[in-house]
């Protein structure tokens, strides 16, 4: 029987097994599976592992997430106020950088792997690997140097520093964030994750003009990824579009996979990439709230039909909101598993 890991490995090489890989980003839903509050669920790596394993068994998709919530990095760097809602992802509730002096004081731990706050992630990955024996790729979420300040000082203050300076202070913060990213990546690799989602909101022209992307952001992206083994690295801009920057990223980095935003056109991603790298056709998850089962199936079919013209293609979701009922998740996944089957040659 073909495993999810084999399916992904084949897609990366442009080979065809039974069907395309189907990545489904069910994160907070693990708490519901275990009958726990969001706070309780994320307090232990064992909970997250169990939640992810149950979700994969239930819906049949091809990926396991080691992500707890965006904001864990801030916790590792000293944030002690996280908002845990009942019905959505946890959220940084207080920023550790409030003044320029806080940037100077920001200390990046020498070793993230042995950091007390990383131990639950290690346990989560250990359990997932043991239970699945490598049959499923375990995904790690990593925040780029340019994006990390958003959860350390808030978007508003970060934009001000980024666009108005002072440049020296901005670069001091970025150097520290770059150091954190590289150490965080090393820790996830040591823990046994297989796929590394490089989350770079400022790597999209939805965030910054193309001129700024090329002249300012791209060099920081290069610095983050300098000397990094490209195996398993995925370029991702949150929900923002990335088709306009694909060529630049391919020219300047060794990235081998792209996870576009839901507003990127999968057919266009395929045309730009022309099988030079793997990409996902990404479903706009928010529409699951309103769409009928028929509309969901039709949209899944449209994305997969467009994407499967390329050899290196997977189907994916953005992040499915907690309020989406299980019946609709089932419709989405069943459609992806059905339409993603390769024709026998």
């Amino acid at each position: 029987m073909i495993s999810a890991s084999q399916r992904l490995a084949a897609a990366l090489k442009g080979e065809r097994l039974d069907r395309i890989p189907v990545f489904c980003n069910l994160i907070d839903q693990g708490a519901r599976e275990l009958g726990m509050s969001i706070r309780q669920y994320y307090s232990r790596g064992a909970n997250v592992a169990e939640g992810q394993l149950r979700l994969v068994k239930k819906y049949g998709h091809d990926n396991l997430w080691s992500l707890f919530y965006v904001g864990r990095e801030a916790v590792m760097l000293g944030c002690d106020k996280i908002n845990f809602p009942d019905d959505g992802p946890p959220n940084v509730a207080d920023f550790i950088i409030k003044t320029p002096e806080d940037i100077k004081k920001l200390h990046i731990p020498d070793d993230i792997y042995s950091h007390p706050e990383f131990q639950e992630e290690i346990e989560c990955i250990r359990i997932m690997r043991k239970e699945t024996e490598g049959r499923y790729p375990v995904i790690a979420y990593l925040t780029s140097a340019l994006t990390l300040p958003c959860i350390l000082m808030g978007m508003e203050k970060w934009f001000k520093l980024l666009l108005f300076g002072p440049a020296e202070l901005r670069d001091e913060l970025l150097n520290k964030c770059c150091e954190f990213f590289r150490k965080h990546l090393a820790a996830y690799k040591k823990a046994g994750a297989d796929v590394f989602l490089y989350s770079e909101a400022f790597g999209s022209t939805d965030f910054v003009p193309m001129k700024m992307f090329r002249e300012f952001c791209l060099p920081w992206i290069e610095k983050d990824l300098e000397g990094v083994d490209p195996q398993g690295m995925v370029y991702y801009c949150g929900s923002s579009r990335l088709n306009p920057v694909i060529d630049a990223i391919l020219e300047r980095t060794r990235i081998e996979a792209f996870y576009p935003g839901p507003l990127d056109d999968a057919a266009e991603s395929g045309r730009i990439l022309n099988d030079r790298a793997l990409f996902a056709g990404v479903f706009n998850d928010i529409r699951l709230i309103e769409w009928t089962p028929g509309e969901i199936r039709s949209e899944v079919k449209r994305i997969i039909t467009a994407g499967m013209k390329s050899k290196k293609f997977i189907f994916g979701t953005s992040v499915i909101p907690c309020c989406v009922p299980e019946t609709k998740i089932r419709v989405l996944l069943d459609a992806a598993l059905e339409f993603g089957v390769h024709e026998r040659r």
């Binding site: 934009f159 666009l163 939805d206 965030f207 003009p209 700024m212």
Partner: peptide
Amino acid sequence: MDANLAQHYMTAQ
């Protein structure tokens, strides 16, 4: 559609 967040921020500021 190519207007971006940095432009919005700068315009307002």
